[in-house]
Every structure is written in structure tokens, then in C-alpha cells.
Computed example of a mutant assay.
Amino acid sequence: MPSSPAQRPALLIVDMQVGLFHGPEQPFEGQRVLDNINQLIHRARQAGAPVIAVRHTGPQGSPIAAGSPSWQLLAQLQLTDADHRIDKSRPNCFVGTGLAEHLKARQIDELVIVGMKTQYCIDSTCRAAMDLGFAAVLAEDAHTCMDTPSLPAQAIIDHHNATLNGAFARCLKTAEIGF
């Protein structure tokens, strides 16, 4: 039986923006998550895998409106001018962004997904990736969110790692992810 072709991965960094990361509510273990994302950027770059950074754009007047200081990607992300950047206005990174077409044009069929916020953009992007035929790897220790009135961030992250693993993504620790 012929083996399936090797996956062609890309790193997808979701919403690691000044206003979300350094806002009034701090992300759970934010520095550890940022460090893990930078490790994955370095590993992707060494392997020649594309790095794509997505940022959420709020409506005019919102804290993360286009062009505002809070809308900017974190300066601590080790991105270069060669890395692709996409702006979105919905939780799902694919809606209205051309991301799927960008990936298909480059024959990318696997996404390593990292960033913020677990229960919104990370969740919806993992689910959409599978629906669109992309294999998704969720770096289980490289996505985060904030505590909510109902649940602490750690519980939200643990729940999403368990829920998404298998049906929508393959959950792996940063140290286990290769490109």
C-alpha cells in the first residue's frame, strides 16, 4: 500500500497582539506561551516552513482598530519581514482573509496553530482548518486566554486541548513539534 504524501506544514500565529497580551486582563502564563511560540518560529524557519501571523482587527473606535497601538503584533514575537501577515475581523482565521487560498497556492496542508484566545480564535480556527481539509496541530502549551467569571484560564485551555484533540486537531507539546 503506498504511503501518504508527507505533510507540508506552516506555523499559524493567532492574535498575539499588544492589546490582547498587555491589556487590562493578563493572559494565563503569557510569557511561557510567548517563549514557546518563539521556539516554534525558530524551528519553522530552520525547516523552511512558512510563518503566518494573524491579527484581529476590531471596528473603528475599538481598542484593536486597524492602525492603533493595541492592534500591533507583539514586538517580542521573533517575526521577520519574510513572514506573512494577515488581518481578520472574525474569530475564524479563514473567513474573509484568503488564508485557505494562500496555503493551497503554496501546497501547505498542515497548520501548527498557536496564540490567543483559546476559546475563541484558536478553537474556531482548529475546527475550520479540519473542515477545509487542512491537518491541524494544536501546540497545547502555546495557546492561552484569560480567566472568565465562569472558569479559570487553565480549565479553559485544558478543556479545549481535550475537546479539539483527535476530532479537530492533533495536540502536541511545543517540544514535540517538528516542521
Rank of each mutant, 00 (worst) to 15 (best):
T125D: 09
H102T: 00
R55I: 02
C121T: 09
Q76W: 09
H160V: 04
S4H: 14
N38P: 05
H22A: 12
G166A: 02
D109N: 15
T80Y: 00
G96L: 11
G133A: 07
Q7W: 13
Q46W: 09
A169Y: 02
T174H: 07
A47W: 02
P2Y: 13
L40K: 06
E140N: 10
L34Y: 08
A142E: 07
N36C: 02
A169F: 02
A139Q: 03
S4K: 14
L79V: 00
V137Y: 10
D131V: 01
G98V: 03
L172E: 14
I37F: 00
G115I: 05
K88D: 08
L74G: 04
A135L: 09
P24Y: 12
D81V: 07
M116P: 02
E25T: 12
H159R: 11
G61D: 13
C121V: 08
N165H: 15
G115F: 04
D81P: 08
G48W: 05
R170Y: 00
A135I: 02
T118N: 03
R45Q: 07
A65V: 10
L77A: 01
Q154D: 12
R55W: 05
C93S: 15
P152W: 06
F134C: 05
R43E: 11
S70W: 09
G58H: 12
I86V: 15
L79Q: 04
I37H: 04
Q119V: 05
F28K: 06
A153H: 05
E110Y: 04
A135Y: 03
D158T: 14
V51Q: 07
E29M: 10
Q154A: 15
S124E: 14
L11K: 06
L172C: 11
M16V: 13
R85T: 13
A142R: 08
V14Q: 08
M146R: 14
R55Y: 09
I13M: 03
I52Q: 09
G178K: 13
M130F: 14
N36T: 02
A105D: 15
D15K: 06
C121Y: 04
P152V: 14
D123N: 15
Q26F: 07
E176Y: 07
G133Y: 00
A75V: 02
V33G: 06
A6S: 15
H143I: 08
P59F: 13
V114M: 04
Y120F: 14
A167F: 10
A47I: 09
G30W: 08
Q76I: 06
T174N: 03
P50N: 09
E140G: 14
R170K: 14
